[in-house]
């Protein structure tokens, strides 16, 4: 079937929806998004919406990964204007929601095709030589002007991608990036209430975030969660120091987006009220009004959780705070 399709396909309003390795090599699944904005909390929600269209159930494309390179040559997209890394449950979705309301902004929220490419070398080492080229080409595909008004491409990564920051940095050395974090007790309580994918051992595949299974088996659950969050905070700290990232605390949100971070995100004066409007609702459940649950998170924390957080995550958090305050004050 693929042989019938001519080489020079137009991918103008198509986006990569999956990166996968099969018997034929690395491949990309594409869906046609048309002018559909990426307005949902996560890229996978926007993808499911696009796949509901009958057109995509019949005509969506499956190409060799090299199609990315060819398409980039023929139609280079906007380069990423900002990267958002985070320690999970820190308000990164809120930032994405505030920016995605702006007609000039494309906001990619945890796109799994990019995550798969960023971590491909852990399981398939030979791809390492091509990874930078492919990553640049994939973001060029995401940076196409589908609606004609786009001028910024903000990419919010998966929490565990903080370990792949040097690779992404190599691809886009001048794109500013920030690392968002919060009091680790609040992250840990949230992850114990409702675990994210990276808090289920083995679920997300190979990542430097994971502990060996025999070590996990020897940990209590609060210890496992606290050490995982601590490891992410430590990585964020290390990368901020080594690669000049901006440390941002959840406590600065949402006002910081239109305040201290306005120039980081390239916001114009006229963008500010629109972005602020996007902060009124719960980012992941937009029909609910946002309410801080900080107090309940602190109340929920048992002595065991507090002790584990203090032992495994408090240190890097304090250092991130020192780094941030040195810059803010």
């Amino acid at each position: 079937m693929a042989t019938l399709i001519p080489n020079a396909l137009d991918f103008h309003d198509w986006l990569p929806i999956r990166t996968r390795l099969d018997a034929e090599g690395w491949r990309i699944d594409w869906a046609r998004f048309g002018t559909q904005p990426l307005a949902e909390p996560f890229f996978r929600d926007s993808t499911e919406l696009a796949l509901r269209r009958p057109f995509n159930q019949v005509f969506r494309r499956d190409t060799a990964i090299d199609a990315l390179l060819d398409w980039q040559q023929r139609s280079p997209g906007i380069a990423p204007t900002a990267f958002v890394f985070h320690a999970s449950r820190c308000g990164s979705t809120l930032i994405a929601r505030m920016l995605s309301r702006l007609p000039g902004y494309t906001v990619l929220s945890e796109p799994s095709p990019l995550d798969a490419l960023l971590r491909a070398h852990y399981t398939t080492p030979p791809i390492a030589a091509d990874q930078p080229t492919l990553i640049r080409a994939m973001l060029s595909a995401y940076g196409q002007r589908r609606r004609g008004t786009e001028r910024a491409l903000v990419v919010k990564l998966d929490a565990w991608n903080i370990f792949e920051l040097p690779l992404l940095r190599q691809c886009f050395p001048t794109t500013p990036w920030l690392f968002l974090y919060r009091d680790p007790l609040e992250i840990v309580v949230s992850q114990i209430r409702q675990p994210g994918m990276h808090l289920v051992p083995g679920l997300i595949g190979a990542t430097p975030l994971a502990f060996p299974q025999d070590e996990v088996n020897a940990m209590s659950h609060p210890e496992f969660v606290a050490r995982t969050i601590g490891r992410m905070l430590a990585a964020g700290l290390e990368q901020c120091r080594a690669h000049g990232g901006l440390a941002v605390n959840y406590d600065e949100l949402p006002d910081g987006v239109t305040g201290r971070l306005a120039s980081f995100f390239g916001l114009a004066e006229s963008d500010l009220p629109i972005a602020q409007d996007g902060s009124r609702h719960n980012a992941k459940h937009p029909h609910q009004v946002f309410q801080s649950d900080r107090d309940s998170k602190h109340r929920d924390a048992s002595d065991e959780i507090r002790a584990a957080v203090d032992q495994w995550a408090r240190g890097p958090y304090a250092e991130l705070e020192a780094l941030r305050l040195a810059r803010v004050l």
Binding site: P6, L9, R32, F55
Partner: peptide, 19 residues
């Protein structure tokens, strides 16, 4: 499918049909 991949007008018409 190959015809649709090469013909933007036909593809646009089909993309618009939601039902």
């Amino acid at each position: 499918q190959a015809l649709i991949a090469a013909d933007a007008n036909l593809a646009d018409a089909l993309l618009a049909i939601e039902e």
